[in-house]
Design a protein around this nucleic acid. Sequence first.
DNA 1: GGTGCTTACGCAAGCCGTAACTATT
DNA 2: AATAGTTACGGCTTGCGTAAGCACC
Lengths: 304, 304
Amino acid sequence: MKLREMELLVRIAETGSMTLAARQLHLTPAAVSAAVRRIEDDLGLRIFERTTRTLHPTEEGLVVIACCEDVLDRWQRTLDEAKGPRVGLAGTVHLSAPTDTTYQVLESLVVALCTEHPALRVVLSTSDMVQHLHRDAIDLATRYGALHDSTLSARTLAVSPRVLVASPAYLDQWGIPDTPQSLLGHRCLTLHLANVPAVSWQMHRGDESHTVHIESPLCGDGFLARRWAVAGMGIAFKSLFDVIDELESGSLVRVLPDYAGDTLGIHAVFPSRRFQPTRVRTVAAAIADRCAARAARCQAWLAR
Amino acid sequence: MKLREMELLVRIAETGSMTLAARQLHLTPAAVSAAVRRIEDDLGLRIFERTTRTLHPTEEGLVVIACCEDVLDRWQRTLDEAKGPRVGLAGTVHLSAPTDTTYQVLESLVVALCTEHPALRVVLSTSDMVQHLHRDAIDLATRYGALHDSTLSARTLAVSPRVLVASPAYLDQWGIPDTPQSLLGHRCLTLHLANVPAVSWQMHRGDESHTVHIESPLCGDGFLARRWAVAGMGIAFKSLFDVIDELESGSLVRVLPDYAGDTLGIHAVFPSRRFQPTRVRTVAAAIADRCAARAARCQAWLAR
DNA sequence: GGTGCTTACGCAAGCCGTAACTATT
DNA sequence: AATAGTTACGGCTTGCGTAAGCACC
């Protein structure tokens, strides 16, 4: 038994598919199939019960796979400990984040990390959509809101309410809304996520709750909504976390400040496997640091 | 990295020698040497610092080797759990024990085990000498007294005092000694262990301590001493544990019953590696059971 | 019919044993 | 001189990719 084979078993169990596991490990499905067969023969155990279309671990398979996870985790940590202090980070980290988080948080952070660790490669996969971490072999993603995939694990990076924002120029030209309903007469900038435009904005003041159905002249991703808002194209409904820079600098101002949107959590999301190379842990820690600093600025701004 | 390679590292560390490790794993020294080199290259770490005559783990090597032990242990237990209930014991267990223990305790036990588990093979290595468990790849040995090799771990099976015994016929013919000194006029049966005859017997009564230097007409191993004693050839100084059968049956009787020899521990001794196949654990448990039963008979006999 | 697992086959790399070599005691 | 580790080389095994086959949607 090789560690590589253990990783294969874990990946198959995680993805639920030999083909996806093969892709992640840069193998062919044929190789994976053969490897599983070989492993099962060696062990004298059936690890996966499979038809051509479904695949799930057997009872014993779960025991073995859990062991493989432990072993890989132990091994990874040992290598980190044994060779960690001497060499810088090396290898590739696959990150995925929403557009705005990518450009505001990750971009400069990645530059800093790669400068500090010349052997480190970072692949940034920018998407507002919930990507399939397993399918794309993402090491670490940031996501807004709760996640529903139980095969993932998450860590909260920040918590921040949605706020309505617009540029001073826009408000000069179109006036300042004073009730949620008055938004209907404004140019509202909505997000277009997962092929479904987000068309209703929910906000509340004390016990009041308001839902406004938006007809949007411009609809894009989070990054575009912010840029458009700064450019005076309309009112955006964004996480405070994403627009704290502009609010601090005054290029955006908060609209309807008495009304707050949902408070969204920003999470770091990992494939559930416990074994993470040092490079992933380090990058995760750096992201958490940046987000914590940014969240502190949000707190300060709200309390000002 | 393969589990087999991990085992190799552990064995090298245990035995302190590539050649011995090679022998245990049925490889050539060349293969071991090449494997170590390969592993070190793969890991980018030096595991063993070595000249042609000495070999010891590096700092990082110790970390890696400890990890390998953990991994092998975890893996072994997992396999036991995953396939344990379905199949009987299989494979080979190497045992080593003193002569008398072998013939009185292990012999019938091994027969029972092999009958119960047809796929089990047992290799019994009988010796009164302290064998090199590592060198001979012994899975489990029993030994009297404390052990001095820190790379081994031990479990106490029984504790029993040495006693002086002789057959009734012998005592009829030669008389019953009434003091330790009177042993000098008797035919005493000594052991010949590790090429050095054991020539002094120590015993005590209350606070008194007596050391008697023996001139022995017959000198052999533990088994022979017992048989000679039964045959009326003289007085033996044996662990009660070894002669409980004869004392119960009356074929031997205790001499100088007020005087007790050292209380010796009987230990099961294992190579320190933590990973033990089920077969070894099962055999160890069976031996412990037998010894416990026998020890209980010793207690009962002393208290009679 | 398409997707995903499996089988067949050829090739390349890995790994072991034999044997000669080197260094240490 | 003897012992332990290393290097060199030939052969066998392992493991992968390509390509074709097969079963469940």
